[in-house]
Design a protein around this nucleic acid. Structure first.
Length: 219
DNA sequence: GCGACAG
DNA sequence: ATCTTGTCGC
């Protein structure tokens, strides 16, 4: 579906981000608790082989509704800030295989918490037109205070004077995650959904399921 | 100039 | 991302 016009150089990729960033819509029309949540992740092997997985869960109960995987060869090298150009192709292919349109995408990476405010979650949201937000495991940009130790506590993530996300504690005393809006959803809503997806573990159940499936698909 | 740097 | 032994705790 995206064969042909994919950036070849870092310069071209950054230009694409600068051009698409204006298409990000932060209007939030998503129900407080959408019927389903769809997680995405990509696994890699030692020779440019990659496997993407998308898993849709019922929001209440977190049971799997459907899942899809897609294997491919990496077409773009990893570079901080341009990460989406590496994972987007297989992720989009996997998404196209779903029988049901996702209500919201939960990405393994950042959205607005990006140097040019256009991380994977924004890119995926703009290209699919679907609501999307990011839940990163580590900080990429910005500074923040340490959130309180209780699950649900959070601290603003600021970069260059802008609030680009939140550092959210999903379990008592565990390392917090980095939540940021991607497209068609607000930060507060993204944080509430993240908590709904982490009743037991640090990472969202969507990410855990997608991670497991992508690794399995790689072999 | 010197670090930092999503996955 | 992925590579890895042991270790602490429920």
């Amino acid at each position: 579906m995206h064969t042909g016009d994919w950036p070849k150089t870092a310069e071209e990729a950054r230009a694409v981000q600068e051009r698409l960033r204006d298409l990000v819509d932060l209007t939030d029309d998503l129900p407080a608790l959408p019927p389903t949540v769809t997680g995405l992740d990509v696994a890699y092997d030692e020779s440019d082989g990659i496997a993407a997985a998308v898993v849709t869960l019922e929001t209440a109960g977190l049971t799997v509704v459907e899942a899809r995987t897609h294997r491919a060869k990496a077409v773009f090298p990893y570079e901080p800030g341009l990460f989406a150009f590496r994972e987007l192709p297989p992720l989009l292919a996997a998404l196209e295989g779903l029988a049901h349109t996702p209500d919201v995408l939960v990405c393994d990476g950042h959205g607005l918490a990006h140097p040019r405010r256009f991380g994977l979650a924004c890119h995926l949201g703009v290209l699919t037109g679907l609501p999307a937000f990011g839940v990163g495991k580590t900080r990429f940009v910005g500074t923040h205070d340490e959130p309180e130790q209780a699950r649900g506590s959070s601290a603003p993530l600021a970069d260059a004077g802008e609030e680009v996300g939140a550092v959210l504690r999903t379990q008592d005393g565990v390392k917090p995650v980095y939540v940021s809006a991607g497209h068609r959803i607000g930060l507060a809503h993204a944080c509430r959904l993240t908590l709904a997806l982490t009743p037991r573990y640090r990472l969202p159940e969507t990410t855990r399921q997608a991670d497991r499936l992508s690794r399995a698909a790689l072999r």
